[in-house]
Design a protein around this nucleic acid. Sequence first.
DNA 1: TCTTATTTTATAACCATTCCTATTTAGAAG
DNA 2: CTTCTAAATAGGAATGGTTATAAAATAAGA
Lengths: 151, 151
Amino acid sequence: MNFQKLIKEFKKKGYKLTPQRRLILEILSKEKHISAEEIFERIKQSQPNVSFGTVYRNLNILLELGLINQLDFKDGRTRFELNKSHHHHLICLDCGVAFEIQVCPFNSEIFRAADSQDFSIENHSFEIYGYCRNCKYNKTKKLDGKEEQQS
Amino acid sequence: MNFQKLIKEFKKKGYKLTPQRRLILEILSKEKHISAEEIFERIKQSQPNVSFGTVYRNLNILLELGLINQLDFKDGRTRFELNKSHHHHLICLDCGVAFEIQVCPFNSEIFRAADSQDFSIENHSFEIYGYCRNCKYNKTKKLDGKEEQQS
DNA sequence: TCTTATTTTATAACCATTCCTATTTAGAAG
DNA sequence: CTTCTAAATAGGAATGGTTATAAAATAAGA
C-alpha cells in the first residue's frame, strides 16, 4: 500500500512517527494538490491543537526526502502533492482546478542543454496555465456583459 | 529599439507614461530575472520617493499586457523578465543563478492533451531546478567536510 | 519505567505583496 | 501656455503565507 510505504520510508530516514505526521501523510495520500492551510484544517478535525508550524515543518521534511512536490498555482499559495507517478498539470488561472497530464516533454535535447552548462538537474516543473472549460465559458459571458454596457 | 517599442505599446493601451514607469521599463529591458525589490532599489537611486506599491502595481499591469513574465526561483521572491524571445531556464537552487535555454519542449502531444480537456492555454512554464557548476562543487566539498567530522 | 533527543505547541516574527487615501501629475482640451 | 481631471503616486498600514523560537510534551530505545 502506498500509505504504508510512505511511513516506512519516513521511519527509515530516522524520523519519529507522530500522530500529526501520520495524518499529514494520510491526507497527502488521499488528496492531490493540497495547500498547507487545507492540511492544517483537516488535521485540526482530529487534533485540535495542531499548529501551522508542525504542518510546514513536516512538509519541508517531506520535500527534502523527495516524497512530495510543490506546485505553483500562481495564486500565492503553494500546493503539495505526493511524488507518485511523474506527471504535469493544466492549471486554471480562474478557479484553480488542476488536471494532471501524463505526458512529459523532457527530452535528450534539454538534457544536453543542461549538460553543456555543467548543470546538475534535481527536478523540473512543466505547468500549463490557462482556463478550464467552465471558466472559459464564464469569461466569455462576462466580456459580453461588459460590451453590452459600453454600447 | 526594444525599449521604445515597449513605451509605445504601453501608451497605446491607454496608460500614462510616468517617469516611474519609464524607469521600470528601462530597468527591465536591461536586466534579466529581476525581483520587485531590486527594481525598487534601482528606481530609488534617481527617484528617492518611489514606493513599493508603484513597482508592484506597474509590474502587474505589465503582466496583464503580456509584456513580462514571472519566474519562480523557489526562494520566495518572484522574478520578472521581459517577454522577448521564448525561452526557459536552468535555475540553481543554491545561489539562484538562472541560465536561459532556447529549447522549448512544448509539442503537439501536449497541445492535444490540453485540447482533450477543453482547456484553453494562456502560457506555460518549464523550469529545470538543480545546481550550477559552482554550487555543485561547493556541495561536494561541504559533504566531504561533514564526513570528516563524523569519522 | 526511565531517559533523552526529537517533536509539538503557541506565539511572535518575518517578508513579499497588496491595500488605502490624500496628494500629485500626465496629458487632453481650450 | 493654462486649466482640468482621470489616473497615478507616496507613504504607510494591512494582509497572508511561511518561518523561527522557546517551553512543554512525547516517541522509542535502553
